[in-house]
Measured scan of single mutants.
Amino acid sequence: MAAGGDHGSPDSYRSPLASRYASPEMCFVFSDRYKFRTWRQLWLWLAEAEQTLGLPITDEQIQEMKSNLENIDFKMAAEEEKRLRHDVMAHVHTFGHCCPKAAGIIHLGATSCYVGDNTDLIILRNALDLLLPKLARVISRLADFAKERASLPTLGFTHFQPAQLTTVGKRCCLWIQDLCMDLQNLKRVRDDLRFRGVKGTTGTQASFLQLFEGDDHKVEQLDKMVTEKAGFKRAFIITGQTYTRKVDIEVLSVLASLGASVHKICTDIRLLANLKEMEEPFEKQQIGSSAMPYKRNPMRSERCCSLARHLMTLVMDPLQTASVQWFERTLDDSANRRICLAEAFLTADTILNTLQNISEGLVVYPKVIERRIRQELPFMATENIIMAMVKAGGSRQDCHEKIRVLSQQAASVVKQEGGDNDLIERIQVDAYFSPIHSQLDHLLDPSSFTGRASQQVQRFLEEEVYPLLKPYESVMKVKAELCL
């Protein structure tokens, strides 16, 4: 049975990233139509530049190519590739079939990587351009969430054990800070992308030097003109047959890092959902379990974690691919890159769409948070109580021993009897502590235990987050809708 299948058929496997999760716009960027249309555009740009620099290419040939950029006979191309065992030459023939007058000058002087690699770089750039505003929107939604809850005390956790208090907004800023680093890295790697350009079979530009009869300047002009037509500021000066596969490492490393950030955020949300302090959106008709109707599973956060793990592992592909590119190139890269580049971007696209949807509907339960604080705060307040007693004339050592005994009794009630923490009640009825009984409410005010959390939130948002989001103001209103 021949390899390949009808990918629109229910009898043929289709990647869930495309069929179930990723956005239509990201799927289109990695589609065959987008790819092969870009090949034709690159052939047109090459012909236009070659004509401008004096090669015998007519206006009629150029116009014929322009008129057929979208006229792609995919069936013919597939048949040609089956016959020739070469995808680029299959599309040269297919393009030439609908451009008979231009057929002889299509791909003039070029090698397969002229269309293959340059198209990949265009796709990487455009895919990054799709991700950047999506990530900015996630940051914006979380920034709104953090600002609104900047002063809401909550129990902090280290080692997932109760620690000092923080605020809900401050905790959210930990998430935002990681995503801001990801946004900066995505922008950097996007701006650092260079075009492969017009380089020939081993990167020496020998074929173009021959076409222009040894004119170095025209060869350099050709490279520059096509690079500018493709919208790049610069091209690699040095290439082998391909652009260095280190570029793929750079791009997928940034995406993998984004995956790590999203995994951490969504894990926190899942843990908070278990504590009943916070939940992701839950639709009115949504079913959490087929057997347990009360369940409210954090399905979206779980999906993000599941896909983020996949995204983090994909960076190993370009690392290994770059390491086995012998001399000017081997074909070890080809099949692998067809999979890992598309999957990385479709996965990143999915987790950003999902995280935006989550961040637009996060639900906080202040009463649950308050109750958990009441359970733990008495123990945390013991040092403040000791200091207040010393100020009232008591002995630190005597007070410490009193607190120690009462704390152990209260802990026994919590752990052995399943009761509430009654340390404060014990202190309130103990005559030894009568000098500070009137101060206990103040000493137990949760806001006095959150330090500068709310001020940190305000400063972080104003100095770091809002300036970073400013270039994306025009796209901030787009909502994230999930079908599944």
Rank of each mutant, 00 (worst) to 15 (best):
L484V: 08
P56T: 11
Q409S: 08
R337T: 01
Y294H: 01
V390F: 03
E25Q: 13
Q456W: 00
L55P: 01
I176V: 12
A103R: 13
Y294C: 00
P24Q: 09
D59C: 14
H263W: 03
Q164W: 00
L258V: 10
K415P: 04
K101Y: 07
D268I: 00
K284H: 09
Q164L: 12
K470V: 10
L406M: 13
F208P: 00
T201M: 00
K233M: 14
I427A: 08
G54T: 04
S412P: 04
I265E: 05
V413K: 10
K75C: 11
D215T: 11
S207E: 04
H400C: 05
T38H: 03
S290Q: 00
Q428T: 14
A102T: 08
H86Y: 00
P467N: 11
H7Q: 14
A47R: 02
G361H: 15
E213R: 14
M278L: 13
D332L: 04
V247S: 10
P298A: 12
F30K: 00
A49S: 12
Q320W: 09
T354Q: 13
N384V: 09
K470F: 12
C173M: 02
A110W: 00
L124R: 02
E250K: 08
C483T: 15
V251R: 05
Q51K: 08
L311Q: 07
Y294V: 02
D191N: 10
A3S: 10
P162W: 07
M26Q: 04
L406S: 06
C172Y: 14
L443D: 04
G214C: 11
I249R: 01
R137W: 06
Q161L: 01
Q161S: 02
S151N: 11
Q320G: 14
G240H: 14
L186R: 01
F327I: 09
D182L: 04
I386G: 05
N297F: 00
Y432S: 10
W39D: 07
E370C: 07
Y466V: 12
V315T: 13
V465L: 12
C266Q: 10
S151G: 11
A78S: 13
E464L: 05
K224S: 10
E50N: 05
M299F: 06
G231Y: 08
S301H: 06
F212H: 05
D6W: 08
F282R: 09
S151Q: 11
V368W: 02
I57K: 00
K66T: 11
Y472A: 15
E250S: 10
S306I: 00
E283F: 07
Q241V: 00
G259I: 00
Y13G: 13
Q375C: 05
V189A: 09
C113P: 04
R371I: 00
F232W: 05
E80G: 09
L128F: 07
D6K: 11
L17C: 15
V475I: 13
K479I: 14
Q63E: 09
S407F: 04
H159W: 01
P162K: 00
W45S: 13
R372S: 05
M26K: 00
A22S: 15
M380R: 02
A90P: 04
G104L: 12
A102M: 07
H97P: 04
I358Q: 07
A22N: 15
D441C: 12
N357D: 09
V413Y: 11
L55A: 01
F28L: 08
W39S: 09
R270K: 02
L311R: 01
L423N: 04
G394V: 07
K367C: 07
V219Y: 02
N297W: 04
K246A: 02
L252V: 13
M225Y: 09
A453R: 03
V247I: 10
H107Q: 02
G197Y: 02
R190N: 08
R452Y: 07
D441M: 07
S412V: 15
R270P: 05
L252G: 13
T321F: 06
A47P: 04
F30W: 11
D117V: 01
P293T: 00
H442Y: 11
K276F: 07
V364N: 04
L461V: 14
H86F: 00
R149F: 10
M278D: 03
E463N: 15
E370F: 13
I358Y: 04
R85L: 10
T313A: 13
K477C: 11
P293G: 08
A103S: 11
D59Y: 13
P366E: 13
E64K: 08
S474L: 15
T94S: 11
M316H: 13
D120V: 08
T119L: 10
C172S: 11
I269M: 06
L179V: 11
A256V: 07
S289I: 01
K264G: 04
V226E: 02
I176M: 14
E343R: 05
A47Y: 00
I369M: 10
F460G: 02
F236I: 08
S253N: 11
V138A: 13
L484M: 15
K75M: 11
T111L: 00
F433W: 05
A453M: 02
V189L: 15
G393T: 10
D398V: 13
K415S: 06
P100L: 09
S151P: 08
Q210C: 05
L444V: 07
L152A: 05
V324S: 09
K224T: 10
D87W: 04
I287M: 08
I358C: 15
L186E: 04
I106D: 00
K391V: 07
E70K: 11
F30G: 00
R337L: 02
D192G: 11
L142I: 09
S112A: 04
A344T: 05
H93M: 09
G197I: 01
F433S: 05
A49E: 04
L69I: 14
H437F: 06
